[in-house]
């Protein structure tokens, strides 16, 4: 059974601009799916519709066989605790320490008062330290978030998502502001999360080569519509052209080379 099912999803901003129209796909448990497409194609909108940071206009989204679109506030929060989210600009609280930022992932499961006062149980703190160890941030636990490099910040972002014990991670261009080395570290971590922990990962990406290298499946989007949905290996230059439009022709590098590498 699919973990996430998106049926005929549409999203309209204002009267005329359609961000998404009739989007259909489903994602299996533990799958690594990448969404690619040109800027403004609706990738971020699609991702945010899934956990309802943006409310879709029509269609249906089922997560763990539960319809997400007409949940009440409380139930929605419960669903959100099962979905971790990672952002391009990390979105950490700069003035707080790494471990405090990590523990923020637990707020959704805490009472209002405990969350307000920042009271976390010993187990939660232990879990935070364990996750930070795995992500190679052992030495940084008490450092302030604004003293970290971009790659380290993104790893804190991943830690904050992982401490939720999520079933699924939504990553909105996680490597768009990183240098190639940090980007590789982040992508390797995400891949490991999906293969070893069995957590479903959905990533928005700009880099076609990275998408092909890491994903089980690629969903290509152009002007709000799914134009490709299939395994990474089967992608042809024609598919890429359909996703990015004819202009991309000369920019797209040799796909054969990427597959070989």
């Amino acid at each position: 059974m699919a973990l996430l099912e998106v049926n005929q999803l549409t999203k309209q901003f204002g009267k005329h601009s359609k961000a998404l129209s009739d989007v259909n796909f489903s994602v299996q448990e533990g799958e690594f799916v990448t969404i690619i497409g040109p800027s403004g194609a609706g990738k971020s909108t699609l991702l945010r519709c899934i956990n309802r940071m943006i409310d879709a206009t029509g269609g249906e989204i089922r997560f763990q066989d539960k319809s997400v679109l007409n949940l009440k506030k409380k139930e929605l929060k419960q669903v959100r605790t099962k979905i971790g989210m990672i952002f391009q600009h990390y979105n950490l609280v700069n003035r707080l320490s790494v471990i405090e930022n990590t523990l923020h992932g637990k707020l959704g499961t805490k009472s209002t008062m405990a969350g307000v006062l920042g009271l976390y149980s010993q187990e939660e703190k232990q879990q935070a330290v364990r996750i930070l160890n795995v992500l190679g941030l052992k030495e940084m636990i008490y450092k302030r978030a604004d003293q970290l490099s971009g790659g380290q910040k993104q790893r804190v972002g991943i830690a904050r998502a992982l401490i939720q014990n999520p079933r699924m991670l939504l990553c909105d261009e996680p490597i768009a502001s990183l240098d190639p080395n940090s980007a590789k570290v982040i992508m390797d971590h995400l891949k490991k999360i999906s293969t070893t922990m069995g957590i479903t990962v959905i990533v928005n990406l700009h880099q076609v080569d990275v998408a092909i290298k890491y994903s089980d499946r690629i969903i290509g989007i152009n002007s709000g519509q799914v134009v490709y949905n299939g395994p990474a290996e089967n992608m042809t230059p024609e598919d890429i052209q359909r996703i990015y439009g004819s202009e991309a022709d000369e920019l797209i590098f040799d796909i054969g080379g990427i597959h070989a590498g």
Binding site: N51, M53, K77, Q78, V79, R80, T81, I83, G84, M85, F87, N91, L92, H104, G105, L107, G108, T109, K110, T112, G115, V116, G157, R160, A161, Q164, L170
Partner: peptide, 12 residues
């Protein structure tokens, strides 16, 4: 947005 997405409420 990041904290909302993890299910945190307004006061938190």
């Amino acid at each position: 947005e990041a904290l909302q997405a993890s299910g945190a409420n307004w006061w938190q």
